[in-house]
């Protein structure tokens, strides 16, 4: 028994180390001075915050951060609102074309995104969406929606249908039943979905690099690749590392804060059990 425990413990450790070493390495690089950046030490010999100061002083990074947050939040909001309604319908109603809708959303979720880059580039250029916020928000919603529909319909299925019937008997309209009874119970699911969709938008590099050309709408992952040193001969590794650390922080915070909400038993006590 204890042998098995040790083996599992060791395996867990290997996985954690494997996943975390690169993150720590980036963090370490971001604190190194330009002179020591190539020395290969895991712990910096000379600590500096210069890299962070530099990236926040450049318009390039700050502007990209604003784009990332703005585009991510708007896409998430739209995808979650539409996804909630669609998922509710899928979980509760029988309507013609329901299977087709589920099939199509699965198809979109599985579709190789890279094959859409060239057509989207051409389309967006010809209708003037290229290098604008909507130009990125639209594809993000497209790919965020299936994700939202799938996670949310699983959540809605868990909510006992009797609650909705009870609300109707108590005098609620369909809308009131949804707003006052179902929606509060689905809140943890909506949160989880929102976080997943936001992380998807936040991390995207493919669309961000392909559908933007200036600082106007370039998000952080794309902007990173345009970082340059102070001169042609200076290596921007430190700045890139610092920016990478900065954009990882919100994701870590999200997961830490909402972990409990994500795995929540809010519906317990609704029915006998």
């Amino acid at each position: 028994m204890t042998g098995a425990k040790w083996r599992w413990g060791f395996l867990d450790l290997v996985v954690i180390v494997f996943a975390l070493i690169p993150v720590l390495w980036i963090a370490s690089l971001s604190f190194k001075t330009p002179a020591t950046i190539t020395d290969g030490d895991f712990i910096p010999r000379e600590w500096t915050l210069e890299n962070y100061r530099n990236i926040f002083n450049t318009d390039q990074f700050v502007r990209a951060l604003v784009n990332s947050i703005g585009i991510g939040l708007i896409s998430t909001l739209v995808a979650v609102v539409l996804g909630t309604m669609a998922a509710y319908a899928i979980a509760r109603l029988d309507f013609p074309g329901k299977k087709l809708l589920i099939g199509i959303s699965l198809l979109i979720a599985m579709f190789p995104q890279v094959s859409l880059v060239s057509p989207l580039f051409e389309i967006e250029r010809s209708i003037g969406l290229f290098d604008t916020w909507p130009g990125l928000i639209l594809p993000y919603i497209t790919f965020g929606l299936p994700l939202a529909i799938y996670t949310l319909s699983a959540f809605f299925r868990q909510i006992p249908w009797d609650l909705e019937k009870a609300a109707k008997m108590d005098g609620a309209t369909q809308g009131e039943a949804f707003r006052r009874v179902i929606a509060p119970l689905a809140a943890p699911g909506v949160f989880t979905t929102a976080i997943l969709v936001f992380i998807f938008c936040w991390n995207d590099f493919l669309f961000a690099i392909s559908l933007t050309s200036t600082e106007r709408s370039r998000t952080v992952p794309a902007a990173l690749s345009f970082f340059q040193g102070a001169s042609q001969f200076e290596d921007p590794t430190g700045a890139i590392s610092a920016a990478a650390v900065i954009i990882t922080i919100p994701i870590i915070l999200f997961v830490l804060f909402f972990q409990r909400r994500i795995v929540s038993g809010l519906t317990s006590g609704a029915v006998k059990g």
Binding site: P160, A166, A167, D170, V181, L185, G269
Partner: peptide, 28 residues
């Protein structure tokens, strides 16, 4: 619609609203 018939129902599963207190359930 059920709401216009002015009848109340007790369900086998009770169907209490888990996010509301007893008072809020009865006041709903």
């Amino acid at each position: 619609a059920p709401r216009d018939r002015d009848i109340a129902m007790v369900f086998q599963s009770y169907a209490l609203y888990p996010n509301m207190t007893v008072r809020e359930n009865m006041a709903f």
